[in-house]
Design a protein around this nucleic acid. Structure first.
Lengths: 137, 137
DNA sequence: TATAATTACTACTTAAAGGTAGAATTAATC
DNA sequence: GATTAATTCTACCTTTAAGTAGTAATTATA
């Protein structure tokens, strides 16, 4: 596809958090162990999510992370944007060559179709959609 | 998406070659200049394409490259395979988590659709399809 | 107030992809 | 056979993503 590990981890983390029944504070150790993400790498990612305003961090003892926004308002594309993984450029999906509106390779139009589908999903699928199907991702 | 540069370059090179009216030998210098690909990197890629049997190289003076197979028989997926860029794994398109047939995230099925579309194109679009629309890619 | 538990920050290391250099090999042509 | 134009091979350099380490800052609780 390929998304960066940061994007994938971030989606896993946030979907996992969204899936928790009680919206208690979750700490880094807990998340890292539950999701098999290296602890230090996880905290790095969490800091990004805090900076961008998706989650809030409470520092110090008994601290942890919780959502800043409602999970139904956080779209997959918001998360991908953070790590520059969105597919929002004007070029054809594969980015093979020099295609543009005027001059395009023969596959350009065909590739537009799945591209648009993916973009649509990225924009329209919220964390709430991803989480809570009896399956931890 | 993102394909490796090697894959993208390879598709550009082969599509360009397929677009040439006369199937003359094309040399590395010519291709590199026409397609804005670093000469040395291009030759590295060409060597891969030779090894895998898509093109033949004629060494020495007046040498160059030409197709081994008919361009209508070379699929985009063949090229992606060489550089391990195909999306043929069993996981969901994003490869976010631990989805599989039994346990899958809520987006798994949605993502299957564009994934299958892309795979279909990769398999069914030949070099002949890509080339020859009055537009060099 | 001391301690333990927690996130944040800064900087480093590692691995992989992308790209480059130069010499070796091959073969047409003079 | 020598020269020259081409590909091929081996090895190296550079850049970026991924991951690690150590320490500072913060805060609840005993």
């Amino acid at each position: 596809m390929q998304l960066s590990n940061s994007s994938k981890y971030a989606i896993r983390i946030l979907a996992y958090m969204a899936d928790q029944k009680d919206s208690k504070l979750m700490n880094a150790t807990e998340l890292a162990e539950a999701l098999y993400i290296p602890y230090k790498f996880l905290t790095k990612i969490m800091t990004e999510l805090v900076k961008v305003g998706l989650v809030v961090s409470i520092r110090g003892r008994e601290g942890g992370y919780k959502f800043e926004k409602k999970t139904s308002e956080i779209m997959v594309s918001d998360i991908l944007d953070i790590f520059n993984d969105s597919i929002k450029d004007e070029q054809c999906v594969l980015g093979i060559g020099f295609c543009n509106g005027l001059c395009k390779c023969a596959l350009h139009d065909q590739w537009m179709e799945p591209k648009l589908l993916l973009q649509k999903m990225f924009r329209e699928s919220s964390l709430e959609d991803i989480a809570g199907r009896g399956c931890k991702i």
